[in-house]
Design a protein around this nucleic acid. Structure first.
Length: 276
DNA sequence: AAGCGTCCCAACCGCATTCGT
DNA sequence: CACGAATGCGGTTGGGACGCT
């Protein structure tokens, strides 16, 4: 029983990649481009499964990969993003140019997880090369259960890619009912001030409520789900009551933004729509 | 120097989601 | 709409590197 493997494992190389394999893969992708991973190994002459090739390329061989030396700024950003997004490593990585989801995940698990659970421990500096061998007696599978619990208390959503998401902050239009496609009555989210929404996100962090996309979705959740699943995520700054995209551009600086209306149309890829 | 324990990270695995027909 | 294939994602594992005794 069980699922059939992604490819036949017989006769395939496993484990660490050799320099020769790297070169073959890199040359092949340089020549033919990414994609068609399943057939790639055969065509490139690699004794690897397609998944393995994809992973190797994305996490190691891509020319724009930055490796090691995660800066203090990057670390701060990871922490902030993780607070908001939880373990959605690919989304977090998307906001850190040159960083991969795997690298960020590893960095989180080996450094930030401990650091945040024990922030006063001076051994946990931001320079992870210096903290490499700190002696917290904890094996991987022995993680503090409380810590595990806390790390799961984050907004989690199904990984959903959006083609075009719209986020209305203060005055959302009636949303079509998923089943009937008819507009729903204005929700209680209407005219909700910005900080209310921020608080709602935080409350959801605290009570582990999951934002389901299917079935039993509250009206407010529809909006927040859209927000949280959007690749072009916005950061809402509590202090300044402004919205920023991750590059630090203020929402209020953008064309068509209106601080009183706070209607923000979001096109994945970060393009600001000329009109709605 | 050898043995042991711990840590880190590349790679693997299984499931979810998207895509194509 | 249904189905299978392809791709993407996040959790987990295993082995090498390193420090300590």
């Amino acid at each position: 029983m069980g699922r059939s493997p992604c490819c036949s494992k017989e006769g395939l190389n496993r484990g660490a990649w050799t320099a020769t394999e790297d070169k073959i893969l890199k040359d092949y992708i340089t020549l033919h481009g990414e994609g068609k991973w399943r057939n790639l190994p055969k065509r490139a002459g690699l004794m690897r499964c397609g998944k393995s090739c994809r992973l190797r390329w994305l996490n190691y061989l891509r020319p724009d990969i930055k490796r090691g030396n995660i800066s203090h700024d990057e670390e701060e950003l990871i922490i902030r993003l993780h607070k908001l997004l939880g373990n959605r490593w690919s989304l977090i990585a998307g906001r850190l140019p040159g960083r991969t989801d795997n690298e960020i995940k590893n960095y989180w698990n080996t450094n930030l997880c401990k650091k945040l659970s024990n922030p006063k421990n001076p051994k946990h500096s931001s320079d992870h090369h210096h903290e490499k061998k700190n002696k917290i007696s904890k094996s991987k599978n022995n993680m503090d259960p409380q810590l595990k619990k806390e790390s799961s208390n984050v907004v989690r959503t199904k990984a959903v890619r959006c083609s075009s998401k719209v986020l209305m902050i203060s005055n959302p239009p009636p949303q079509p009912d998923k089943k009937t496609d008819q507009p729903m009555a204005n929700s209680s989210m209407d005219k909700q001030p910005l900080d209310m929404i921020v608080r709602e996100v935080e409350d959801n962090n605290n009570n582990s409520r999951d934002f389901g996309l299917d079935g039993d979705i509250g009206e407010g959740d529809v909006w927040l789900s859209g927000f949280l699943n959007s690749e072009e995520l916005l950061m809402i700054s509590h202090e300044e009551n402004t919205m920023e995209d991750w590059s630090g551009n203020s929402f209020l600086d953008q064309p068509n933004s209106n601080p009183h209306d706070l209607t923000y149309f979001l096109e994945c890829g970060g393009d600001w729509l000329a009109d709605n």
